[in-house]
Every structure is written in C-alpha cells, then in structure tokens.
Design a binder for these strands. Structure first.
Length: 163
DNA sequence: AGAGTGATTCTA
DNA sequence: AGAATCACTCTG
C-alpha cells in the first residue's frame, strides 16, 4: 500500500502512548532499536502496527493508520472480506488486516533484507500542501488528544476519514 | 449510537 | 484476585 495517514506517539513524553508509563512486556519492542514493528492487539479483535523510531531506551513510534492499495488487491480483499478498494486499508486495524500483520510480526525488522519494509515512492505523489496535520484519533480527553500528531493526505479517499 | 471481544495493566 | 481500560470496526 501507499501510506496516506500516520500518527506519532512519543512514549514516556506522551500520555496517549502505550509506552507512557515505561516499558512493559507488551511495549518492550518500542523501547528497543528503531526500524522494527510494534504490533499490538486491542478491543479483543484488532491488530494495529507501528514503526519503532527512537534509539534504544527511548520509546517513539509511528502508527500506520491508512494506506492506498497498490498491489495484491485480491489477497487483501480476501483477508479483509471486503470488496471496496477504499475500505481495504482505511484505518489502522484494517491496514494491519489487509497486510496480514499480527502477533508474529511484533518486533519484526523492517531493515534492508527483511520481508516487510517501507520504501520511498520514486514518483513524487504528494506535496507538503497535500498533507494535513490534525489531532490524533481515538484518544480520550487528557490523554494527549490535543496534540496534532496525525498526518494525513487530506484529499485521499483511502484515509480513515474525510478531511 | 452500541455491541463485540479479550489482552494488558493497575489497584488491592 | 478483580476491575478498568482500550492508538477499533461494523452494524444498525
């Protein structure tokens, strides 16, 4: 997919982050080296994937919130049980499901030579003017909900909501 | 607007 | 141990 929406989480500096209260068995990956996936399970049924960003000992991660399907459309349709291309990866749990990400990918490396990776698009698709910065989704009040740590391609029909 | 669903973490 | 919470999605 082509990523069209992400959110930043700043660990111990950020009450909205799973890492706010320091490392736990669940969050230890986020306190490890950058370039790995932090995949967590929530609401009894959903997986969501983050990219760990900070140096060892510092919890920082970026939640992958939405993507535009580019390849493997039929595989993603079957994983999602949905036909509409715009709903295949429009949301963090939808994206993870479309990509087939779950427990076994927690801690997986994204570095060169890995089976999962992120790469720059050779074509320039979006300019800075296409990207909006907003408050994050799904955080209760007082949990860092006022921070504008969500970046989204405003006009993309593949984002998790219209902006 | 509400239900579904179960791991994780905090409190006692 | 028990309870609260939850970086969500789908269906009405």
């Amino acid at each position: 997919v082509r990523l069209v929406e992400v959110e930043a989480y700043r660990g111990t500096q950020d009450p909205g982050s799973h890492g706010f209260r320091g490392p736990t068995p669940r969050t230890e990956v986020m306190f490890g080296p950058a370039g790995r996936l932090y995949v967590y399970f929530t609401y009894g049924m959903h997986w969501c994937a983050n990219v760990v960003c900070g140096p060892v000992g510092v919890c920082e991660a970026v939640l992958l919130r939405a993507g535009q399907p580019l390849e493997g459309m039929e595989l993603m349709r079957s994983r999602r049980g949905v036909d509409d291309e715009r709903l295949l990866a429009a949301g963090p749990a939808r994206l993870a499901q479309a990509m087939g990400l779950s427990r076994v990918h927690d801690g997986a490396s994204l570095l060169r030579g890995s089976r999962i990776w992120i790469e720059n698009d050779d074509d320039v698709v979006f300019s800075d003017a296409d990207v909006s910065r907003t408050r994050r989704i799904g955080l209760s009040a007082g949990r860092g909900d006022e921070l504008e740590y969500r970046w989204v391609v405003s006009a993309s029909p593949y984002a998790s909501r219209r902006t």
